[in-house]
Structures are given as C-alpha cells and as structure tokens.
Simulated assay, not measured.
Amino acid sequence: MNGEEQKEPYTLEAYTSGYIEDLTVPEDSLFVMGDNRQNSTDSRDPSVGCIKISDVYGKAVFRLYPFNEIGLLN
C-alpha cells in the first residue's frame, strides 16, 4: 500500500498471488479482497476492479479477530 509491503501475519499463505500494476483507488471506491485470497474473484480481477462505496451495503456489528478484541462493535 502506497509503495510499502503490508505485514499480514493473520493470512495462511505467506504470499497472495495476483499481479496488479500500479493502482490508485479512486476517492469514492474500495479495493476489496476475498477471504480465500488464492481463489477469490475480487478487485485483483479486471472484471471486478474497485467497488464504489455507494454500492456497499451492510454494517459490521461483531468482531471475531483479533481474538483479544472479540465482541460487539459500537
């Protein structure tokens, strides 16, 4: 992100496949990745790309991970 490798110790694989050229996520959009990164069709696939924030519906109400912060969200 922003030219820096992200540390993600919570992933099962040490590497997420998929090549992305330099990408700037538009101000009104999100870059989304599936939870099964090796087999997900997500923003890395040109047929999906970045998702407009206005197209996202739902609300997070419960956190499972990290386990020391499990519980309801405000």
Rank of each mutant, 00 (worst) to 15 (best):
M1T: 14
M1W: 07
N2E: 14
N2D: 15
G3M: 03
G3N: 07
G3I: 08
E5M: 10
E5A: 13
P9S: 09
P9E: 02
L12R: 12
E13C: 00
Y15W: 12
Y15Q: 09
T16E: 11
T16Y: 04
G18F: 06
G18Q: 04
Y19A: 11
Y19M: 03
Y19R: 02
E21Y: 03
D22S: 11
L23K: 12
T24I: 13
V25I: 15
V25S: 08
P26M: 04
E27C: 04
D28F: 05
S29T: 08
L30K: 04
L30D: 02
L30W: 10
F31Y: 12
V32Q: 02
G34M: 07
D35C: 07
D35R: 08
D35G: 13
N36L: 13
Q38D: 15
N39T: 15
N39A: 15
S40F: 02
T41Y: 10
T41R: 13
D42R: 02
D42M: 04
S43R: 00
D45W: 04
D45Q: 10
D45R: 07
S47K: 13
S47Y: 03
I53S: 01
V56M: 06
G58N: 06
R63N: 10
Y65C: 10
P66W: 01
P66A: 05
P66I: 11
N68Q: 10
E69L: 14
E69G: 05
I70S: 01
I70C: 03
L72V: 07
L72W: 14
